Computed example of a mutant assay.
Amino acid sequence: MSREDFRNLPLHKKINLLYTEGTFIVGIRYYTHKVNLFLLGQEYIEVFYNHKLDKIDNIDFLNTGHSRMKFYLDQIQLPL
């Protein structure tokens, strides 16, 4: 599945795909979200869960240039 195909999926299908075919890597706290990092095939994908609203706000591919990377790299070794 291409990145574009994944991005075009409805949220519930992204969730199902990640939880059935993906591998959970690590979870971090980032401002108002718990961000779970998954590996799906060769792609890292972040799931942004807003615990105050009890909902997933966003699911997207890991942006390795984002400052959030330091939180992941403190806990695990990611191939960049």
Rank of each mutant, 00 (worst) to 15 (best):
V47T: 09
D60I: 07
H33I: 06
M69Y: 11
G22N: 10
Q75A: 09
K13A: 07
Y19S: 07
F38Y: 15
F24C: 00
N36G: 10
V35G: 06
I56W: 02
V35P: 11
H51K: 14
D74T: 09
L73F: 09
G41I: 05
Y72A: 05
N16G: 10
L73H: 14
Q75C: 05
F24Q: 05
V47H: 02
I25E: 01
T32R: 15
Y30S: 05
K34G: 07
K55I: 10
I56H: 00
F71Q: 11
D57G: 10
T20D: 09
D57I: 04
Q75T: 03
G65V: 13
I28G: 04
F24E: 14
L78K: 01
H66K: 13
I56K: 03
V26H: 04
K14P: 00
K14T: 00
T32E: 15
L18V: 10
Q42S: 15
I59E: 06
H66N: 12
V26E: 13
Q77T: 06
I76E: 02
R29A: 12
L39E: 12
Q77H: 12
L78E: 02
P79L: 07
I28Y: 06
I28A: 07
N36H: 14
L62G: 10
T20G: 08
I76D: 02
D60W: 03
S67K: 12
L18A: 14
V47C: 04
I56M: 10
N50W: 12
N16I: 15
E43N: 13
K13R: 10
Q42T: 14
G41S: 02
T64I: 11
L53H: 10
R68P: 00
I28Q: 09
L18N: 06
F38C: 07
L40H: 10
G27F: 02
I76R: 07
N16C: 04
L37K: 05
G41A: 03
L17E: 05
F61Y: 13
E46Y: 04
Y49R: 03
N50V: 09
K55M: 12
F61K: 06
I76V: 13
Y49G: 00
L18H: 04
Y19P: 01
F38I: 06
Y31K: 15
L62V: 09
I45S: 00
Y72C: 08
V26A: 13
R68A: 03
M69C: 01
H51L: 11
Q42I: 14
T64H: 11
L39V: 08
G65W: 02
R29P: 08
N50K: 09
G41K: 03
N63C: 07
N58M: 08
L53M: 13
L78G: 02
V35E: 07
V47A: 09
L73E: 11
N16D: 15
K13H: 04
D57A: 06
K52A: 13
L40W: 11
H51G: 08
I56A: 01
G27A: 15
I76P: 01
D74R: 15
M69K: 03
Y30G: 03
T32D: 15
E43L: 03
V26G: 00
V47P: 00
V47K: 08
F38S: 04
R29Q: 14
T32S: 13
F71D: 04
T20Y: 11
F48G: 04
Y19L: 15
V26T: 06
I56T: 11
I25C: 05
R29D: 12
K13C: 04
T64A: 02
I76H: 05
T20K: 14
